[in-house]
């Protein structure tokens, strides 16, 4: 890039010429009055003192006025710190009346082995300080903005109450910088946060909702998080997130035809009512009856309602729950089976 630029400017014919020019320049630089006689010239990194072209100009020493003593020496112990350090600023050693040190001393020889004190310590200026956010500052600030606060509603006496009255949490961020621009692209992001218990679902809808939500749903806390940041403005993102949530909800209530095709492998949990286990149980119960043709499956189940319910629960527990309570679940299952069939071991 720069070469082509040079070419254009100087109108050099080719690269060869360029090389030539370079060598020529170098030669000229070395053949000055400073060159020494003999075969080898010594390399002088710094010009020798007696070889200087003219006398070194003496720079006048700048005259400074007396420097004030640091301000902290005159501070009283009962001063109002909020007036001394009202806003965020870099560290000023002359103002902070504390013996602060910062820095690392490599050896004992350096600075007598002590960490460097605050005066002329650039490290302290680099780090953020919180001298402008002492408890007194916060109190003052709170008192100032209290006029814009409404009283806390009495109904919101617990976390559950807040969750109940305010089911959804919408998070946006405002950014404030001391720059010429008041815009910040991060301010466009809108986050929706809510618990699934706040929505009305049947089993199918909930299952579908969770499947559609995918990684946005947190199983442990039962929370769904929607983040919208595709659009350039916050309002657009907000509207989009609302649309997303509404669409998600109503979509999950629909049952498509292909949903009928789901097999046992697609179950999210064990449905005993649809399982082959139920058919087998019915067969066994039927076999018990004196007149198998006179009873249908419903009346059979009704008659043994208690036992069947227990059985159903224990077998679904064995299927659904993991390894944690496996032994206990299996034991329950065994007892229920024995009870159901009136067996004794």
């Amino acid at each position: 890039m720069s070469l082509t630029y040079l070419k254009l400017r100087l109108k050099l014919p080719s690269n060869n010429m360029l090389v030539f020019i370079r060598t020529y320049r170098q030669a000229q630089r070395s053949t000055g009055p400073k060159s020494q006689e003999g075969e080898f010239r010594t390399l002088q990194l710094t010009p020798a003192k007696n070889n200087r072209s003219g006398p070194m100009k003496k720079r006048p020493k700048p005259v400074y006025k007396e420097v004030l003593p640091p301000r902290y020496l005159r501070m009283s112990t009962d001063q109002d710190w909020t007036n001394v350090w009202p806003t965020a600023t870099t560290f000023k050693q002359s103002v902070v009346p504390l013996p602060i040190t910062q820095g690392y001393v490599a050896s004992d020889k350096e600075n007598k082995g002590l960490p460097i004190e605050k005066r002329a310590n650039a490290e302290l200026m680099k780090i953020p300080n919180f001298f402008h956010l002492t408890p007194n500052h916060i109190k003052k600030h709170c008192a100032a903005i209290k006029q814009y606060c409404t009283p806390w509603p009495e109904e919101f006496n617990s976390d559950e109450a807040c969750e109940y009255y305010l089911p959804i949490q919408i998070t946006t961020h405002d950014y404030l910088n001391s720059t010429p621009s008041i815009r910040d692209t991060r301010a466009r992001v809108v986050k929706f946060n809510f618990k699934l218990t706040q929505l009305e679902f049947d089993e199918h809808a909930r299952d579908k909702f969770v499947r559609l939500a995918g990684p946005r749903y947190n199983t442990d806390t039962d929370e769904l998080t929607l983040v919208a940041d595709k659009c350039p403005y916050r309002k657009q993102n907000y509207d989009y997130a609302q649309y997303l949530l509404t669409a998600l909800y109503f979509e999950s209530w629909k049952t498509e035809t292909w949903e009928q095709e789901r097999t046992k492998n697609d179950w999210q949990r064990y449905y005993w009512d649809e399982s082959p286990s139920r058919d087998r149980l019915l067969d066994i119960l039927k076999a018990h009856e004196k007149d198998p043709s006179s009873v249908n499956s419903k009346s059979l189940l009704d008659r043994n309602k208690k036992l069947v319910e227990r059985y159903r629960k224990s077998i679904s527990r064995v299927q659904d729950e993991g390894v944690e309570n496996e032994l206990k679940n299996l034991k329950d299952y065994k007892n229920d089976v024995l009870m159901l069939y009136n067996l004794k071991l």
Partner: peptide
């Protein structure tokens, strides 16, 4: 309005 100085600065 909280920002006031004590004349030290």
């Amino acid at each position: 309005s909280c920002v006031q100085t004590d004349g030290g600065n």
